[in-house]
Amino acid sequence: MGFKLLSKLLVYLTASIMAIASPLAFSVDSSGEYPTVSEIPVGEVRLYQIADGVWSHIATQSFDGAVYPSNGLIVRDGDELLLIDTAWGAKNTAALLAEIEKQIGLPVTRAVSTHFHDDRVGGVDVLRAAGVATYASPSTRRLAEVEGNEIPTHSLEGLSSSGDAVRFGPVELFYPGAAHSTDNLIVYVPSASVLYGGCAIYELSRTSAGNVADADLAEWPTSIERIQQHYPEAQFVIPGHGLPGGLDLLKHTTNVVKAHTNRSVVE
C-alpha cells in the first residue's frame, strides 16, 4: 500500500471513529477524501466538511520552486461564519470567499490569524475590503508590521502568557507558548472536538522541520505538551499544512522538532 493511500485511509478511519463516538456532533463529509496538494491548482481553494458547521479550507501556493498546501478553518456561528487564517495570499483568499459563498452561503463576518507569517495573514486586506472584521493577538499584529505583512485590524486580548485561553464565538483560542513562531495560536472547536494546530503542528508525513527561522526550538516541545494537557479530548487535529489526523500529530511534531534540534547540535 502506497504512503499517500495509507495517509488518506488514516484520515478516513479517524473521521469514521469520530462519527461513531459522537453521532450528534459529527456529520463528516462523505463526498470524498481530504484534498491534497496535487489536486488543488494554485489560485483555487477546496472546502472539506469535518463536522456539522465545521470545515477546513485548503489552498496551495508556490514557494521556492515548489507547491505547498495550506489549511485553515471555518466555523459556523449562528447565521454567520468565523474564518481562521487566510488562504495564503490575496488571490487565494478572494477564491476562498467565493467558494464559501458557493458552498455554504453564509457571510464571513470575523477572521482570526493564528500567527504573523504570510500563509496566515496574506489576504487580510481582501477580507477587510469584503467587510470582514480581522483579528490577531497584539504580538501577531506587531510582528506582521515588522515583517511588512498585512496586519489584522483588531487585537485579541488575554493571550499574552503561555497557557492563556479565551473564548471567541464558537471557538476557544489558546496560546501554548512559542513553537513554530513566538505568537502562534491554537484554535479548538469544543462542539466538535476539532483542534486546529496551525503551523505549530505537523502532518504525519512530514519528517523535516522546514521553516524554523522564527521558531523557538527549545520551547516548542513544552508548548505541545500544554496543548495535549489542555485538549486531551480532541479527536480531529488539523495541521497548518497537509493531512489531518488525531492527537498523534502532536507527538510526531515533537519528535521531528527534537530530531532537528539534535542534528543542529551535532553539526
Rank of each mutant, 00 (worst) to 15 (best):
M1K: 06
F3Q: 05
K4Y: 15
L5H: 09
L6D: 12
L6Y: 10
S7Y: 11
K8F: 15
K8Y: 15
L9R: 15
L9N: 13
L10A: 10
L10P: 13
Y12W: 13
A15I: 14
A15F: 09
S16D: 07
M18N: 15
I20M: 11
A21Q: 14
A21R: 08
A21S: 10
P23A: 11
F26H: 07
S27R: 14
V28F: 05
S31P: 08
G32T: 07
E33R: 11
E33S: 08
P35T: 13
T36C: 06
V37T: 13
S38P: 08
E39S: 12
I40A: 15
P41W: 08
G43W: 07
R46W: 10
L47M: 15
Q49F: 09
Q49G: 10
A51M: 06
D52G: 10
W55D: 00
A59F: 04
A59E: 08
A59V: 13
T60L: 14
T60W: 15
S62E: 07
F63E: 13
F63G: 15
D64L: 09
G65S: 10
V67K: 15
V67L: 15
V67M: 15
Y68H: 08
Y68W: 04
Y68C: 04
P69Q: 14
G72Y: 04
L73T: 00
I74K: 00
V75E: 02
R76T: 09
R76A: 09
D77H: 09
D79P: 09
E80S: 10
E80G: 09
L81T: 06
L82P: 04
L82H: 03
L83S: 03
I84G: 02
D85A: 01
D85Y: 02
A87W: 01
A87M: 00
W88L: 00
W88P: 00
G89A: 02
G89W: 02
A90Y: 08
K91C: 05
K91V: 15
K91N: 14
N92S: 06
N92V: 00
T93V: 00
A94Y: 14
A94E: 14
A95S: 12
L96N: 01
L97S: 03
L97P: 03
L97R: 00
E99G: 12
I100Y: 04
E101Q: 13
E101K: 13
K102R: 13
I104W: 00
I104P: 00
G105F: 05
G105L: 07
P107H: 09
P107D: 09
P107S: 13
P107L: 08
V108G: 03
V108E: 03
T109E: 07
R110P: 06
R110A: 14
V112F: 06
V112E: 05
S113D: 02
T114H: 01
T114C: 01
H115T: 00
H115C: 00
H115I: 02
F116N: 03
F116T: 02
H117S: 00
D119G: 04
G122V: 07
G122R: 06
G122F: 05
G123P: 04
D125V: 07
V126H: 07
V126W: 08
L127S: 01
L127I: 04
R128G: 10
A129W: 09
A130M: 14
G131H: 09
G131R: 09
G131E: 08
A133R: 12
P138W: 07
T140Y: 05
T140G: 03
T140W: 02
R141E: 03
R141Y: 04
R142L: 13
L143M: 11
L143W: 09
N149W: 05
N149D: 08
E150D: 14
I151V: 10
P152M: 00
T153A: 12
H154L: 10
H154S: 11
S155H: 12
L156M: 09
L156G: 02
L156A: 04
L156Q: 03
E157R: 13
E157L: 13
E157S: 11
G158T: 07
L159T: 04
L159D: 03
S160H: 13
S161Q: 14
G163A: 09
A165P: 13
F168L: 08
G169S: 05
V171N: 02
V171T: 06
L173Y: 04
Y175D: 03
P176N: 01
G177A: 03
G177T: 01
G177H: 05
S181D: 00
T182G: 11
D183H: 03
N184R: 00
N184A: 01
L185P: 03
L185W: 02
L185G: 03
I186S: 04
Y188F: 11
Y188P: 00
S191F: 14
A192P: 06
S193G: 11
V194N: 02
V194H: 03
L195F: 06
Y196L: 03
Y196T: 01
G197N: 04
G198A: 07
C199F: 04
I201N: 04
I201Q: 02
L204T: 10
L204D: 14
T207Q: 14
N211P: 13
N211E: 14
V212Q: 10
V212D: 11
V212A: 09
A215R: 04
A215M: 05
D216A: 08
D216E: 08
D216N: 12
D216W: 06
L217N: 03
L217W: 06
L217V: 13
A218L: 13
E219P: 05
E219A: 13
W220F: 04
P221N: 11
P221L: 11
P221Q: 08
S223N: 01
S223V: 09
R226K: 08
R226N: 10
I227L: 09
I227C: 02
I227A: 06
Q228W: 10
Q229V: 12
H230G: 12
H230Y: 08
P232A: 10
P232R: 10
V237A: 03
H241P: 04
H241I: 00
G242A: 05
G242F: 04
L243Q: 15
G245N: 04
G246H: 11
G246T: 12
D248E: 14
D248P: 10
L249V: 04
L249I: 07
L249H: 03
H252R: 02
H252C: 01
T254N: 13
V256E: 03
V257E: 03
V257S: 02
K258P: 06
K258G: 12
H260E: 13
H260V: 12
T261M: 12
T261N: 13
T261C: 06
R263A: 14
R263S: 13
S264P: 10
V265T: 13
